[in-house]
Design a binder for these strands. Structure first.
Length: 283
DNA sequence: GCCCAGGAGTGTG
DNA sequence: CACACTCATGGG
């Protein structure tokens, strides 16, 4: 079935392709294909419109897409706030279309535990292997992300065969200890308490807790620090040190929209490394 | 072949 | 607190 939504500003390719979600792939014709909930989507941006087709499944696809892309975020307000930072100010406008995504909490938790010490193509492959091995078949080659009770039936060895390596045992432990009620409780927590709860989960440390807070639970003040962000903070702000120290710097400097600042810095730093272009510079 | 990846867990100073 | 070491493995 067809769907169409209006979201502005939005750069669909930047948002789906910058490593927040691991389930969408660019097509040769510029469209994006991926799985959202129980739907397989093919979506395409035409100006401020997003249109595409979704496999049937009952749910309102318009709302699912609006939620995924956080259509209600006031990007102008966010950019005005972050634009007071002199390092970010010159470049953020060119990334107005980069939006934080809102993922399913369970899928986000597992995906970012898999993401530890792996690169994005490999993470996508691991998630795909879990989905095709233990998820529901949606249509040709498309599988939903496995729910907890289904994934819980997988042995550690089966998980390893999905390419997870040592991450297999974390996934196993999470299936046994984090149920739907626990996730529902976490949905109602403040960022500070959510973060503490997440870090108690096997395989979840500072960085994964912040990714899951940001992309899974929608806490825009979360600021995940990976190797790219470490480089960006060192290069642009002369800030180095422990996770805790850098986290406090980010909270002080970027405030309630630190998550957006993080995504801008992350994207910029990767562009600098891979394409040798960037929009931010020191001072 | 080499280097690195959206790190976490554990032990030590 | 901060640091050092180990953990497996595939992608560029």
């Amino acid at each position: 079935m067809k769907f169409e939504v209006e979201i502005a500003p939005l750069d669909l390719g930047l948002t789906l392709g910058c490593g927040q979600t691991f389930r969408f792939k660019a097509q040769l014709d510029g469209a994006w294909s991926g799985v959202l909930g129980e739907h397989h989507l093919v979506l395409r941006q035409i100006g401020t419109r997003i249109e595409g087709t979704a496999s049937p499944g009952g749910k309102n696809v318009d709302e699912l897409v609006l939620d995924l892309l956080r259509a209600k975020d006031d990007i102008d307000k966010i950019q005005r706030a972050l634009g007071r930072d002199k390092v970010l100010a010159p470049g953020i406008r060119s990334m107005r279309g980069l939006r934080i995504v809102k993922l399913d909490e369970w899928e986000c938790l597992i995906s970012y535990v898999l993401a530890t010490y792996a690169n994005i193509p490999r993470i996508m492959k691991m998630v795909e292997a879990l989905a095709s091995g233990f998820g529901r078949r949606i249509e040709r080659g498309a599988y939903s992300f496995p729910e907890r009770k289904t994934l819980a039936r997988a042995s550690v060895n089966e998980l390893r065969r999905c390419g997870l390596g040592y991450r297999a045992e974390y996934v196993r432990a999470i299936c046994d200890t984090v149920d739907e009620d626990a996730l529902a409780r976490m949905c109602r927590m403040t960022y500070a308490n959510l973060r503490k709860s997440l870090i108690e989960i096997p395989g979840v440390g500072d960085k994964v807790a912040d990714c899951v807070s940001l992309f899974g639970f929608g806490k825009l003040e979360a600021f995940p620090i990976d190797v790219w962000i470490e480089r960006a903070l060192a290069r642009l702000y002369r800030q180095r040190g422990s996770y805790r120290r850098l986290m406090e710097f980010a909270a002080e400097r970027f405030g309630e929209y630190a998550g957006y600042a993080q995504e801008y810095l992350y994207h910029n730093e990767r562009m600098l490394a891979h394409e040798n272009v960037c929009v931010f510079s020191e001072k």
